[in-house]
Design a protein around this nucleic acid. Structure first.
Length: 688
DNA sequence: TGTAACTCCCCTCCG
DNA sequence: GGGAGTTACA
């Protein structure tokens, strides 16, 4: 399918210097990197040089004359794609700069902007995040009259979850309800009505949610004319983290590579941790069936961890009920067994982590080479306070995102109605910010606009209730002004400045502690300054939301700053550190309580713990407190048991550690600052 | 009838 | 903190 001229260009312009990869890779890695055409499955355990192999494979393709822009590299995060492409550049020269790389969603977005219009999808669509989609479902739900009467009707989040699951797994709604929400089976017909309305609303309002991005990409590929055009863009497709893809993504790959079959996927079934997004580790096993004639290469030599750490991880994962990859091995003998640390309570757990990490820091490990991992973002609250008190810099990954804060969404709503006046969800949010306007006035204003082809003038003409007259006039004036000035030329930040003239007063009125929120908005302006126009800015923040404070930092000098990493296990995927602390290894925390009743979910929690442990190079400490404070009970209580994954066999590979300070004063707890969520938010979102 | 203020309850993981 | 549900007030 490929145009041969493309090859000429690549070889003449780029002339990459030949390198002998055989000396830089082990035999399996080398075989994978230099594999020729056809489907290739690389089963790569944790720390086996998976990224390295992919990088070399890209380099190899470039060296053998494949043109850079005809390679597509699909990764789990945009960051991962950039990192890999950067490394490939170093290997073979400047060519891989034009390699297309990114997430499935990001790539879908790019292709839909280009090919969507030919298939009836307006090019200027707005991307909705998960919260927006749920809000829109809520509008459908209310419109259809489910709002009031039925008490037990599912919440908007549930409606969205079921919808998304249906789309990503291709399991019928009835099946999902029967399996996961038996109490809602009676509403099946209602689900169908709401989803039909939701779909129509999205179409009429020119809105696209995360699931649509994938579905539309898939449908485009299956369209006779357009599909072959898109497929013809690429000669080679490489997919990282394949164990975390779902059926829909597999279908996309089939459409993309059905013709040339030059597809390379890399994954590890033992690290599949995204089933809540419809991913299944079985996907990777289906791959050879999907692409007959697949060559399979396994990477099992681990270059990351010491043997004792691998012993513990291997034992842990050996308990998995279904498992396809073999044990990992390493030449890195020596090192001490992972610590299993018992503490009296959370405060002591915190104290242990802080003292131990300072100890390791003294020994020469930079803070940035250490990480504290946990099952859910809120589980690090106590530690964050202590680190703040002790002035130990840290960076948090995962958890509540900047963009999910209410005041940030408020400001974005202004921008979004300017970008897409049909964005009903944003109108609904925006209008209710005005004093005197509530749900029903907002609804009728939106209805009035819908009747007038969503012209801003229709909003201006809309008669507000007397109480809201002034606010309505100010908003209408602002929107008209902002619309007049053509967006572009780095003026999104200027837009936000003008929006804040109106909004900051509203913010002061609504919230009690305004300073951290105002500085969030400052941050938002800084981010906005980096984008050429409103559309690019809105799409970018939907697809690549800033993950932690570092992503928000002004300038790029912060790489030099030495900061401890705090991360959810999910956000730690693909990373590694010299020392790793794993908190709350307690039944009910890890595994989480809600997974205890379900075999599959328990298996995923086990894989999650495996991912956590295999992040460590030299030091691993797993902690569990014996007592916890329950806000519900308002008192301390005894934790029933250590995480069930740390059974006697696993414990045999670890060493038991009881922090010294516990013996000294077993009942005395060091004074700890009270939990102050606002301070935490300030720390998280504030400047610097 | 619609808005605002109040209460109670629940907190997962991510593009 | 925030959403859902309820009540008090204009």
């Amino acid at each position: 399918m490929a145009d041969p001229k493309v090859y000429d260009r690549a070889t003449t312009i780029d002339a990459p210097q030949a390198r002998d990869f055989a000396q830089e890779l082990n035999p399996e890695q080398h075989a994978a990197a230099t594999f020729g055409n056809g489907p290739l499955l690389i089963v790569a355990g944790a720390g086996t040089g998976k990224t390295r192999t992919l990088v070399y494979r890209v380099a190899h393709l470039l060296q053998s004359g494949v043109s850079a822009e005809r390679i597509l590299l699909l990764t789990f995060t945009r960051r991962a794609a950039q990192e890999m492409l950067g490394r490939a550049v170093q290997l073979v020269g400047g060519t891989s700069r034009q390699v297309h790389g990114g997430t499935f969603h990001g790539t879908a977005h790019r292709l839909l902007r280009r090919f969507g219009p030919a298939a009836g999808l307006a090019g200027d669509f707005t991307i909705m995040d998960q919260g927006d989609a749920a809000d829109l479902l809520q509008l459908s739900r209310a419109q259809l009259g489910y709002g009031d009467a039925k008490k037990r009707f599912p919440r908007k989040e549930t409606l969205h979850y079921v919808y998304s699951r249906h789309v990503n797994t291709e399991v019928p709604v009835a099946g999902i309800l029967a399996e996961e929400f038996p109490r809602f089976v009676e509403f099946e017909a209602d689900f169908a009505r709401i989803y039909a309305d939701f779909t129509q609303r999205k179409a009429e309002r020119n809105l696209v949610d995360y699931d649509d991005l994938l579905v539309f990409w898939c449908l485009l590929l299956e369209h006779p004319a357009i599909g072959s055009k898109i497929a013809a863009l690429y000669d080679h497709v490489l997919v990282d983290e394949y164990q975390d893809t779902n059926i829909l993504q597999a279908r996309i790959l089939r459409g993309l590579c059905g013709e040339h079959r030059n597809i390379t996927v890399v994954g590890d079934d033992a690290q599949s941790i995204y089933s809540f997004r419809g991913a299944s580790f079985r996907n990777i096993l289906e791959f050879p069936r999907e692409f007959p004639g697949t060559t399979m290469i396994a990477l099992e030599q681990n270059y990351r961890s010491t043997q004792p750490i691998l012993d513990t991880s291997n034992t842990l994962i050996s308990r998995a009920s279904e498992r396809f990859t073999k044990n990992l091995w390493t030449h890195r003998q020596g090192g001490e067994p992972p610590w299993l640390v018992t503490t009296n309570d959370e405060q002591q757990q915190t104290r242990f982590v802080v003292e131990r990490l300072l100890e390791l820091h003294e020994e020469g490990i930079p803070l940035r080479e250490m990480a504290v991992l946990f099952r859910a973002a809120y589980m690090s609250a106590d530690l964050e306070i202590e680190l703040t008190n002790r002035k130990i810099p840290f960076e948090k990954w995962g958890g509540l995102k900047f963009l999910e804060a209410a005041h940030v969404k408020d400001v974005l709503a202004f921008l979004r109605v300017l970008e897409n006046p049909r964005d009903e969800v944003s109108w609904f949010r925006l209008l209710q910010l005005l004093p005197g306007i509530g749900e029903s006035t907002a609804r009728s204003a939106i209805a009035a606009m819908a009747e007038s082809a969503w012209a801003l003038e229709a909003f201006e003409r809309f008669p507000p209730p007397p109480r809201a007259r002034q606010a309505h006039a100010r908003l209408a004036e602002l929107l008209m002004q902002l619309r007049l000035r053509p967006s572009g030329g780095n003026e999104v930040a200027a837009d936000i400045t003008r929006i804040r003239v109106l909004y900051d007063d509203i913010l002061r009125e609504r919230y009690d502690r305004v300073e951290p929120r105002l500085s969030d908005l400052d941050q938002l302006q800084v981010i906005a300054g980096g984008y050429p126009d409103r559309g690019a800015f809105l799409a970018a923040i939907a697809l690549e939301p800033p993950q932690g404070t570092q992503d928000l930092a002004v300038g790029g000098t912060d790489d030099e700053q030495d900061a401890l990493i705090l991360s959810t296990v999910h956000s730690a995927k693909g990373k590694e550190w010299d020392a790793v602390f794993l908190l709350w290894a307690v039944d009910g925390w890890f595994p989480m309580a809600r997974a205890l009743g379900d075999e599959d979910e328990l298996e995923e929690e086990r894989r999650l713990m495996y991912v956590a442990m295999t992040r460590a190079r030299d030091h691993l400490a797993v902690t569990y407190p014996l007592n916890a404070y329950s806000t519900r009970r308002g008192s301390d209580y005894t934790i029933d048991q250590l995480s069930r994954f740390l059974d006697p066999g696993v414990r045999d590979t670890m060493q038991r550690v009881v922090p010294k300070f516990q013996d000294e004063s077993p009942m005395t707890v060091e004074p700890v600052a009270p939990l102050d969520l606002r301070e935490l938010m300030k720390k998280r979102f504030g400047p610097g």
